[in-house]
Write a protein that binds this DNA or RNA. Structure first.
Length: 453
RNA sequence: GCGGGUAUCGUAUAAUGGUUAUUAUAUUACCUUGCCAAGGUAGAGAUACGGGUUCGAUUCCCGUUACCCGCUCCA
C-alpha cells in the first residue's frame, strides 16, 4: 500500500472518530453557532463523563493509593512574578519581526540588525511581517481598567502552583522529602499551530505532579516514575501496548531546565505523537523561586539537619490528548455482528472502552415500549443510578438500541422482557462478546458491583 | 504566522445563474415488531458568515471564519 493511500485511509479513520464524537455527544466544535473558534472544542455529555473517568483513574493511581503524594488545585491567574521567575516571560517580551524571505526573526528595536539583514539579501528588498510579541502566555488584566500595571497571565503550565506551595504543603501536611504534589488543571498557550482535532488546543488540561527528592536520588526516582507512568496507560486505561512507546529525548533537545526527559507517544491515526512526558527538572524551579521571592525554599532534613534544595521529578500527562488516544484505541469497526440478513449495514462501530472509562456503565432497555415493561425498566434504571451512570432507551427495535450502545462504548445492557414481569429477572448483555445472562432483579446491584470491581 | 485545498440538513452526499435544493442514514411522533441496525405513515432539519457582479447568486468574484494537507512554532 502506498504511503498516500495509507494516509488517506488513516485520515478516514480520524474523520470517522471526529464524526462519531460530534454525532453522539462526546466532543463538539467550540462556539459552533458563531462559526467556531480555532482549536477550541466542547466536551459534550458523553465526553465529560469519559474525561472525568480518566481524571478519577489518574488521581487514584497517583494520589489516593500512594500516601507520599498530595493534591492541590491552584488558580489559573497567578502573581505575574511567578512567570518572571519561571522564565516564561523573560524569553519573549521583545517585539519581533520576521523576514518573509528567509523567516529569520529579529528584534524590531535593533535597526542596525535589520539593515544588516537587508544587505545580506543583496539588494532584494526584504519584507517584514508586522512586529509581534511572540509570547505564548495569554495576557489579561486585573481590575476593570486595561492598564499595563495590572497585567497578568493565564498560566502556561500547572507546575508552578506546586513550587509556590512547596513550603506550605510541608508545614500543613508535615510531609518529608521524598514526597509529591499533584494537580489537574487548565493551561493556556497562545500557539499558532492548527491541531489535529483536540490534539493541540490553546486551552488544555494537564495532570502532573512534582516529586521532590534529595539530590542524588533523582535518577532512581525517575526510573520508578517512568514505570508508574506506563502502568497508568496499560493497566488503568488499558491502552493496547502496541500503540504506546517511550521516546528518550536526546541531550541537545532537552529543555533548559531538564536533565533528562522521556516522552510517551501514542499511535494516533495521524501518526505517533506525544501524550505524556517525564522530566528531571533538577532544582531549577525552586532555586529560581528562592532567588526571586527571597523565601527560603530550602528543605531541612529533620533527622540530619542537612539543608538542600530538592530535585524534582515531574511526570506530566496531557489529558485531552489522552482522551483522544483512548477514543482512537477503543474505536473499532466490525463486520455486521447481527444474524439478521442485513446488507445495508456492512460495518458497525464498537467503542471497546475500558469499563471504568465508559460514559454510561449500563443501558436499561425494555424489549417493548409498552406498559408495564417500561415502568419496570424505569424502576430498574432509577435504582441502578444510585451507583452508576445509566442510560435508558425505549425507542426503536432492540437490535438498533444495542448498536447505539455499542457505538458509545456502554459495557452492559439490561433488557426487560415479558418474562421479566413473571420471573423478576432480566437479561444482561455484554458489549464485546454479545453474550447474555439471566439475572434476578434483586441481585442486579451485586452482579454489577462485582463486574465493576 | 506562511503556502495550497475544502465548505450543501446531525452525518454522508446530489444538483443548479431562475418555481418548493436531491438521496441515504440518523432523528421525532404514531402504527407495527418481541433479544442483536425489520417494515409502514407523518414531521422537523442544510447551501458557513459578510460584501460585490447580476433583473435574479447556493452556483461567478472578493473578504472573513472554520476545517484539512504541508511548513513554521511548541520556551
Amino acid at each position: 500500500m502506498s504511503k498516500k493511500i495509507q494516509n488517506q485511509k488513516e485520515n478516514n479513520k480520524m474523520d470517522k472518530i471526529v464524526s462519531l464524537c460530534k454525532r453522539r455527544g462526546f466532543i463538539f466544535p467550540g462556539s459552533e453557532i458563531y462559526g467556531g473558534l480555532a482549536n477550541s472544542y466542547d466536551y459534550g455529555p458523553l465526553g465529560v463523563e469519559l474525561f472525568n473517568n480518566i481524571k478519577k483513574l489518574w488521581w487514584r493511581r497517583f494520589v489516593q493509593i500512594r500516601g507520599d503524594v498530595v493534591g492541590v488545585e491552584g488558580p489559573i491567574i497567578m502573581n505575574p512574578k511567578v512567570w518572571e521567575a519561571s522564565g516564561h516571560l523573560s524569553h519573549f517580551t521583545d517585539p519581533l519581526v520576521e523576514c518573509k524571505l528567509c523567516h529569520l526573526r529579529l528584534r524590531q528595536d535593533k535597526p542596525d540588525d535589520i539593515a544588516a539583514h537587508e544587505r545580506a539579501h543583496q539588494g532584494k528588498k526584504a519584507e517584514w511581517t508586522e512586529a509581534k510579541n511572540f509570547n505564548l502566555l495569554f495576557k489579561t488584566f486585573i481590575g476593570t481598567v486595561e492598564d499595563d500595571k495590572a497585567a497578568a497571565y493565564l498560566r502556561g503550565e500547572t507546575a508552578q502552583t506546586m513550587f509556590t506551595d512547596f513550603k506550605l504543603v510541608i508545614e500543613a501536611l508535615r510531609k518529608k522529602v521524598p514526597f509529591g504534589i499533584a494537580q489537574i488543571g487548565r493551561n493556556f498557550r497562545n500557539e499558532i499551530t492548527t491541531g489535529n482535532f483536540i490534539f493541540r488546543m490553546k486551552e488544555f488540561t494537564i495532570a502532573e505532579l512534582e516529586y521532590f527528592v534529595k539530590p542524588g536520588e533523582d535518577d532512581a526516582k525517575f526510573e520508578e516514575w517512568l514505570a508508574s507512568q506506563q502502568e497508568f496507560f496499560i493497566k488503568d486505561l488499558e491502552i493496547k501496548p502496541a500503540n504506546i512507546k517511550k521516546v528518550e529525548l536526546p541531550k541537545d533537545e532537552l529543555a533548559h531546565y531538564s536533565k533528562r526527559t522521556v516522552d510517551t507517544y501514542f499511535n494516533f491515526p495521524f501518526g505517533w505523537d506525544e501524550i505524556a512526558g517525564i522530566a528531571n527538572r533538577t532544582d531549577y524551579d525552586l532555586k529560581n523561586h528562592l532567588e526571586h521571592s527571597k523565601e527560603n525554599l530550602r528543605y531541612r532534613d529533620p533527622e540530619t539537619n542537612e539543608e538542600y534544595i530538592p530535585y524534582v521529578v515531574e511526570p506530566t500527562f496531557g489529558l485531552d490528548r489522552i482522551m483522544l488516544a483512548v477514543l482512537a484505541d477503543a474505536y473499532e469497526e466490525v463486520e455486521a455482528r447481527s444474524g439478521a440478513d442485513e446488507t445495508k449495514h456492512e460495518q458497525e462501530i464498537v467503542l471497546r472502552l475500558n469499563k471504568k472509562l465508559a460514559p454510561f456503565k449500563i443501558a436499561v432497555l425494555p424489549l417493548s415500549k409498552k406498559e408495564p415493561l417500561t415502568k419496570m425498566g424505569q424502576d430498574i434504571a432509577a435504582a441502578l443510578r444510585e451507583q452508576w451512570m445509566i442510560d435508558y432507551d425505549e425507542t426503536q427495535s432492540i437490535g438498533k438500541r444495542y448498536r447505539r450502545q455499542d457505538e458509545i462504548g456502554t459495557p452492559y445492557c439490561v433488557t426487560v422482557d415479558f418474562d421479566s414481569l413473571e420471573d423478576k429477572a432480566v437479561t444482561v448483555r455484554e458489549r464485546d462478546t454479545m453474550e447474555q445472562e439471566r439475572i434476578a432483579v434483586d441481585k442486579l446491584q451485586d452482579y454489577f458491583k462485582d463486574k465493576f470491581n
